[in-house]
Amino acid sequence: MTSGPVSVPLADELVLGALELERTERGVLPHRLPAWARGQCFDGQGEGAQLAQAEVQPAGVRLALRTSATSIELDVLRTRKVIRGVPPRPDGVYDLLVDGELTEQATAPGGDVIQVDMTTGQSHVERGNVGTLAFTGLPAGVKDVELWLPHNEQAELVDLRTDAPVEPVPRAGRRVWLHHGSSISQGSNAASASATWAALAAASGGVDLINLGYSGAMMLDPFAARVVRDTPADLISLEIGINLVNADAMRTRAFTPAVHGFLDTVRDGHPATPLVVVSPLYCPIHEDTPGPGTFDVEALREGWIRFAATGDPSDVKAGRLTLTVVRDALRRIVEQRAAHDPNLFYVDGLDLYGPDDHDELPLSDALHPDGEAHHRIGQRFAKHLATA
């Protein structure tokens, strides 16, 4: 006689892809930046708040269980952001994989909502209830189960229940790939958590992913470099550039030494680990036009999201960054360093998603690839994983 689901402690070894698990009064909150690093970025209006909201969205974070359970339930408190006047983003999707195969998907009911008014810069939280995800009818027998948390909304884990004992999935012998990048790396506009390009590349390459892609917040921050330095990994990749351009955060004079400094810090902890520098993917609005980027007001009036660049191309001569400028600089930096660092590699983002890809699979919001494009990018980057 099969017993009903019983509570399973949310032990650290059951959660993969997070750098820290915060024990809250309601449950367990996965973080993709440790507390000391979060404390070094201003957590108020602007980029500090952007990073704080992005790192707590658990892109690449998953529960990994070895079990004979046929029923798994998860109580979760979701938190999503709604910007006044901007169409809401799709609900986060939880992906259940059994022995590496996507078996079931679900969204969480209830949850908290952060309401943001861009005209005043003010925000407030509307409290909601804990929701339950139930996955039943799983195959009998011992199997490896992964439950991928959504890449685009916060997920506070409240209670895990199964109808059979669980144990951690052995990780011995599996390589770890740590990737740091922007919203495209986090998974913006991907169909679901296990269908971001980074997750797809990791699955294809048979590696364990740590996704440090932060929407709008890959700014070559020194604390991020130290996090990468201190995190065990067998392969590291850095997608650099798009956020610096669309935030108009840096000029050419500062960019080159900032990249060198970031790489120097990473090498302090990973002197011989294969390290891949990825330049920006194709994005027409910023190829030759600096930031800052902003919402396309006309598109918002019509009820959909689209981004636009507001800089002046003539300012490139004064040192403002575009994607073309960034690619040239990154190629030059890697070539210079590779002379004494044989494990440093350069991947041109245009080889992952270029003008021809845009003609076939255009960026629907002018900034982020859609689900089909994520698949294409993931397949292409998987080849670089295999090479490294």
Rank of each mutant, 00 (worst) to 15 (best):
V98S: 02
K383Y: 08
V347S: 12
D351S: 07
T67S: 07
A299W: 04
T132P: 02
E372H: 12
A224V: 13
T103Y: 14
D234M: 07
Q50I: 13
A254C: 03
A225C: 02
R174Y: 04
L10D: 00
R332S: 14
K81I: 03
D12C: 07
E104G: 14
W36N: 13
P369R: 09
L238P: 01
G121N: 08
D99V: 06
S3F: 13
V347R: 03
P284Y: 06
R23Q: 12
G141K: 13
I333S: 01
D288F: 10
N243W: 02
A201Q: 08
P165V: 04
H260C: 07
L385K: 03
E298M: 14
D312N: 10
L63W: 04
W197R: 03
G110I: 14
I285N: 00
N343M: 11
P313K: 03
A339F: 10
R78N: 07
A386I: 09
Y346S: 06
D315P: 00
V278W: 01
R320K: 11
P292N: 12
V158N: 02
D359T: 07
P88T: 09
H179D: 00
V116S: 05
M1E: 12
E153G: 03
A140D: 14
L21F: 15
V125D: 01
A69C: 07
N246S: 02
D359V: 05
Q40F: 00
L321A: 12
R23F: 05
D144G: 09
